[in-house]
Simulated scan of single mutants.
Amino acid sequence: MTGAMADKKMALLWLKIAVVYLLVGVIYGIVMAASHQYVFRSVHAHINLLGWASLALAGLMYHLYPTAARSLLGRLHFYLHNGGLPVLLVCLHFYAGGMRQLEPVVALASVIVGLGILAFTVNVMMNMKVALSTGNVDSA
Rank of each mutant, 00 (worst) to 15 (best):
W52V: 02
A69W: 01
Q37N: 15
V31L: 14
L72T: 08
Y65N: 07
A68M: 06
G51H: 02
G25Y: 07
L55E: 04
G51D: 01
K16Y: 15
L64K: 07
V19W: 09
H36M: 15
A56R: 01
H63Y: 15
L72S: 03
Y21V: 03
V26K: 08
V39A: 14
Y62R: 00
F40N: 07
V31N: 13
F40V: 08
A69N: 08
S54G: 08
Y28T: 06
V39N: 14
H46A: 09
L15S: 03
S35I: 04
L60M: 15
G25E: 08
V31Y: 12
G29W: 09
V26H: 08
V19F: 14
A68T: 03
S71Y: 00
H46W: 05
V43N: 02
S42L: 11
R41F: 10
Q37S: 14
Y38M: 12
L22C: 13
Y62W: 10
L60P: 01
Y21H: 15
V24T: 15
G74A: 01
L22D: 05
L60I: 13
A68K: 02
N48K: 01
Y62H: 11
T67Q: 08
A58I: 07
A45F: 09
A56F: 10
K16R: 14
L57C: 09
K16V: 13
I17L: 12
L22N: 10
A58K: 00
A69I: 06
G59A: 05
G74R: 00
I17P: 02
G51Q: 02
L22S: 10
I17F: 11
L57F: 14
V24K: 06
R70N: 10
H44T: 09
A34K: 10
I27S: 14
H46F: 06
I47L: 14
Q37T: 13
A58D: 00
Y62P: 01
A33L: 07
